[in-house]
Structure formats: C-alpha cells, structure tokens
Simulated scan of single mutants.
Amino acid sequence: MSVAAPEVRMASARGRWIVLTTVLGSAMALLDSTVVNVALPHIGEDLGADLAALQWTVNAYMLTLAGLILLGGSLGDRYGRRRIFVVGVVWFALASLLCGLAPNAGVLIAARALQGVGGALLTPGSLALIQASFHPDDRARAVGLWSGFGGVGAAVGPFVGGWLVDGPGWRWVFLLNVPLAALCVPVALRHVP
C-alpha cells in the first residue's frame, strides 16, 4: 500500500497558514529559552529568589524540554502530529500563565518544568507538520522559512524581554505566550492537515 505524497503547495493560502502556525508554535518555545534570561534579575528581586532558584528557573525548562523532545516527536507520530502540536501549544500556554502568576520561586520553577513538557510536545511537531504537509518540491522552502523565522524569534528574544521587563514587568515575559497560543491553536485546527 503506497501513501500519497502531500499536495500542499507553498504558494497556496493553506501553505502560508501552515508555516505561520508552525512558526508561532515553535517561536513560543524558542523565545522562552532566551527571553527569560533578561528577566532573571527582576524575578529574583520580586520573588526573593537566590541564585540557585534563578538557575533552576532556567534549568527546569531546559531539562524537561531536552529530556522529553524525542518522546514528543514519537507521540506525534503515534497519535497525530497536529493533535500533539496543539496539545503542546495549549500545555505551554497554561504553564506560561502559571509562570506569570507564580507567587514564589518554587511555583515558578515547577511551572517552568511544565513549560518544558509543552515545548517538548510542540517543537518536534512543528517541523514534522511541515515535512508531512508540503509537496516535496516546496518542502525545503517551507523548512527554510520555519528555521529562518525561528532564528529571528530567538534573536529578538532578549530585546522583547528587555522591553517587557522595563515596561509592564517580568511576568509579561510569560504571559505573552497566552495570546500567541490563542492565535496559534485555531489556525492549526482550521488550516493544518
């Protein structure tokens, strides 16, 4: 039994929606890996966190993300790439909300670990959706756009973090993910095969 090649073309509206959705999802995870570093001094001051707690604020996210990313890809293969991607985006947004509302360093560290789980679900799914959706002739271009915009997102993370910390406050470093997820999920459900 042969499987038909994906027919989504880059020039189509559906192709652009798929790229937008996957870029938004993966950008949330990439931004959080860079933007939080800028907010650490303010987090420490506001929550009374020592250096060890601030290190765990970063490490809890990175450990769960790195430790579970292969599992996230495998779950996508088994239960559906779009389904696991959407679960990951929602999970990440809820954990981000918990981070933004954290009353103390312990809750923030636990919420950051949960964010890493969400990131491990959505990150491999974003690239797998591109691989599975696009026609072979357009796949390289779609991956290039995904990785290029992802790189831009990682690069602007410190600037966005600085702006948020100096403006509305460090909690918005995390709360920013909620509206991004609110945009990403409906687009994924409607436009991603």
Rank of each mutant, 00 (worst) to 15 (best):
I130Q: 10
I130P: 15
I130K: 13
Q131N: 07
Q131S: 12
A132P: 10
A132E: 11
A132Q: 08
S133D: 07
S133W: 03
F134W: 04
H135W: 04
H135I: 02
P136F: 00
D137V: 04
R139G: 08
R139C: 04
A140L: 12
A140F: 10
R141C: 02
A142K: 08
A142E: 05
A142P: 15
A142R: 09
V143S: 06
G144M: 14
L145T: 14
L145Q: 14
S147M: 06
S147H: 14
S147T: 13
G148S: 05
F149H: 12
F149V: 08
G150S: 15
G151I: 12
G151N: 14
G151L: 09
V152P: 10
V152R: 14
V152C: 10
V152S: 14
V152Q: 11
G153A: 12
G153T: 08
G153D: 12
G153C: 08
A154E: 05
A155L: 09
V156H: 08
V156R: 14
V156S: 10
G157V: 02
G157C: 11
G157W: 01
G157A: 11
P158R: 12
P158S: 03
F159E: 07
V160W: 13
V160M: 15
V160S: 08
V160E: 05
G161F: 00
G161M: 04
G161Y: 01
G161V: 02
G161N: 05
G162V: 03
G162N: 02
W163Q: 09
L164A: 13
L164H: 15
V165G: 11
V165H: 09
D166T: 08
D166R: 05
D166Q: 12
D166G: 14
G167F: 00
G167K: 13
G167N: 14
G167I: 05
P168A: 06
P168S: 06
G169M: 03
W170L: 02
W170I: 04
W170S: 04
W170R: 10
R171W: 01
R171D: 10
W172M: 15
V173M: 08
V173D: 03
V173H: 09
V173C: 06
V173W: 06
F174W: 01
F174L: 12
F174D: 11
F174C: 13
L175Q: 05
L175S: 05
L176I: 09
L176T: 01
N177V: 03
N177D: 03
N177M: 04
N177S: 05
N177K: 09
N177A: 07
N177F: 01
V178P: 14
V178F: 01
V178R: 07
P179D: 02
P179R: 04
P179A: 04
L180C: 06
L180M: 11
A181T: 03
A181Y: 00
A181L: 07
A181R: 06
A182W: 00
A182N: 09
A182Y: 00
A182P: 07
A182Q: 00
L183Q: 07
L183E: 05
C184V: 05
P186D: 00
P186L: 01
P186I: 00
V187D: 06
V187Y: 00
A188N: 02
A188D: 05
L189N: 03
L189C: 01
L189S: 02
L189K: 08
L189A: 04
L189E: 01
R190N: 03
R190S: 05
H191N: 12
V192Q: 01
V192H: 03
